[in-house]
Write a protein that binds this DNA or RNA. Structure first.
Lengths: 226, 226
DNA sequence: GTCTATAATACGATAGAC
DNA sequence: GTCTATCGTATTATAGAC
């Protein structure tokens, strides 16, 4: 292994030697995943995309898997920061829905969901790869979970609805719909889903308001009996 | 191309020559997709799973893609028949939900969703493969669409909710959650989702009953304004 | 219809020159 | 740190014996 390992400290404002190349490799890896899918993302295709030599992938990351995981971890972290920032500024339900729709639309357009979907599919049956990939999904599910709990708070449904499962379902929905949407890009499935989110949000708002003002209504009681 | 092409007619009750092998290959293809994922499903691994020679895949189907598409089309058709039959016997809402949960649980357990998820992921960027795979999803979305419309009928929501988009979202959700669930099989995400379906169904029932008995309520009007 | 053998190609990864 | 060259191995697909 010729991993550069821990490097000397570098003057502030200056990049560590090779750091530029590392970033280029990560960028190229994401671009390739978006354009070619998991199957088409090899050390050679990544190098072709980024315009550098194939051997650099192994010099800097040791393996293709390590590049992909590093790339998705970096992407996930960056997007998560964006989400948290915007959500903090929109504490009520309409605000949360608006932010969620807005940032999810960005993710879809940037191809972030494509990257995640492709990696998830490619992770099949590979234990260590799956473990690390799952770890980069957890903070997202946590974030959705928090938002769901905030929305449910004071509606009388907080004890009935398992918010974590709902969060998993919502996260999974975007992965699945994006995958389905790419099967037939002409169909505009993803766009339809995003557009429908507004309608659904309006509906949900009305329903939750109903539950909020009558949290021990017959419907709620009936529902909790399951 | 050494495709056997159209074959002579065969006495009823008897299989056409090579038909047994064709079926074995399709079975092996699905088993391999379940066990190894899309990446691990090659002509050689399919042959290894089924205990036959690798060259037979090309003799009978011409290419690996053709085996996979034929296999999923056969599977989709068979499952669709099962769905339709059971749904016909359960015309009301509780019945529909029960059947849906039941048959979906079967699909998950048999690995049908895994097969679909893997193929969808592997189809990325391959136009003709995607087109045919999308075609085998359409009847499913149609079926879900019909069920959604039946549930919505008479609730006053039929004109507000775009049932087709909801159907796409529901279909996509199962694909996505299944993929996410396989990232960390220990987490029991898929099982949790299915278990939660009952609770959600109960809730939904209560909500729809509410809308049904007051289809021009303030909440409904507010929701339709978006 | 099923087999063996093989051609042509792509891959991950490494060695070693610079 | 980046390059060329290469090893070993996997793949799809085909040719041809049986």
């Amino acid at each position: 292994m010729s991993d550069p390992g821990r490097r000397r400290a570098v003057p502030a404002g200056r990049s560590a030697p090779g750091e530029v190349t590392r970033e280029r490799i990560l960028d190229a890896a994401l671009d390739t995943l978006r354009a070619e899918g998991f199957l088409g993302t090899t050390a050679r295709s990544i190098a072709r995309t980024g315009g550098f030599n194939q051997a650099l992938v192994f010099y800097h990351f040791g393996s293709v898997d390590e590049v992909l995981l590093s790339a998705v971890e970096r992407m996930s972290q960056r997007r998560l920061d964006t989400y948290r920032g915007r959500l903090a500024e929109a504490p009520d339900l309409p605000g949360i829905v608006a932010v969620a729709r807005e940032v999810l639309a960005e993710d879809v357009q940037r191809g972030a969901i494509t990257v995640l979907s492709q990696l998830v599919a490619g992770a099949h049956g590979r234990v260590e790869f799956s473990r690390r990939l799952a770890a980069s999904f957890d903070p997202w599910i946590d974030l959705v979970d928090e938002a769901v709990q905030r929305v449910l708070a004071g509606t009388g449904l907080a004890t009935v609805v398992p918010s974590r499962d709902v969060a998993v379902a919502m996260t999974g929905t975007f992965v699945g719909v994006e995958l389905l949407g790419q099967l037939d890009p002409e169909s505009g499935r993803v766009e339809a889903l995003l557009a429908t989110l507004d309608t659904t949000a309006g509906l949900l708002q009305g329903l939750l308001a109903l539950f909020g003002s009558a949290s021990s209504s017959p419907a709620a009681a009936e529902a909790s009996e399951g």
